[in-house]
Nucleic acid binder design. Structure first.
Length: 180
DNA sequence: CTTTAGAAACATG
DNA sequence: CATGTTTCTAAAG
């Protein structure tokens, strides 16, 4: 299970992004409910629901300023099946962030899925061996949970570190993938 | 209204 | 306490 990683294509946007139509919705997953959103190009937002729907909607609007969002449960449901019941290994992501963030996320995506990593290791791989804190910061900003394996990164002192969806969820996913 | 400067914050070691 | 980046706020221009 941990061997099969997603193949991910992703696209980078400028700060002044062009108009996008974003579809969003809430759906189930093996790890609880998720808020999922996608542009025509791919998934741009995926978070485990720990707050109410409005919180994520606001976030979405804030991040993708020039875009309009609309709900489409069916479409989102379809996407989620592709992600979580993955017979399909290829998923399209549509990420937006600073160069630094993108590089960190890219590194995360290239990580082998069969073991844990320390924040420090990640920093080295990303090319910023001394910028651990900055990297951790970027990891926290990752808009697409689970696909970008931010849960695979842990503290060096044995602690789990943080997780936007809650540390419990982090633990849950890790044990489901036999990494812990 | 747009740009700039500075400070605080951050999922660490 | 250092590290490097982002984000927020306040003050200019």
């Amino acid at each position: 299970m941990s061997e099969s990683k997603f193949k991910v294509k992703y696209e980078v946007l400028d700060k002044e992004s062009s108009f996008r139509e974003i579809t969003y919705g809430i759906c189930g997953s093996p790890f609880g409910e998720v808020f999922l959103a996608a542009t025509g190009a791919g998934i741009c937002y995926l978070q485990f629901c720990v707050k109410d729907e409005n919180f994520y909607k606001e976030n979405l609007v804030k991040k993708w300023k020039n875009s309009s969002i609309k709900e489409d449960k069916e479409k989102i449901h379809k996407i989620s099946e592709k992600v979580f019941l993955s017979n399909v290994k290829e998923v399209e992501l549509h990420l937006k962030g600073t160069d630094f963030q993108l590089q960190v996320w890219r590194t995360l995506l290239s990580l082998p899925g069969n073991r844990l990593f320390f924040y420090q290791e990640l920093a080295s791989f990303a090319g910023f061996p001394t910028a651990v804190r900055a990297v951790a910061n970027a990891v926290g900003k990752n808009p697409v949970h689970y696909l970008v394996p931010c849960h695979q990164i842990v503290r060096k002192d044995g602690g789990l570190g943080g997780y936007a969806g809650g540390v419990d969820k982090k633990k849950l996913i890790l044990s489901a993938e036999n990494l812990i």
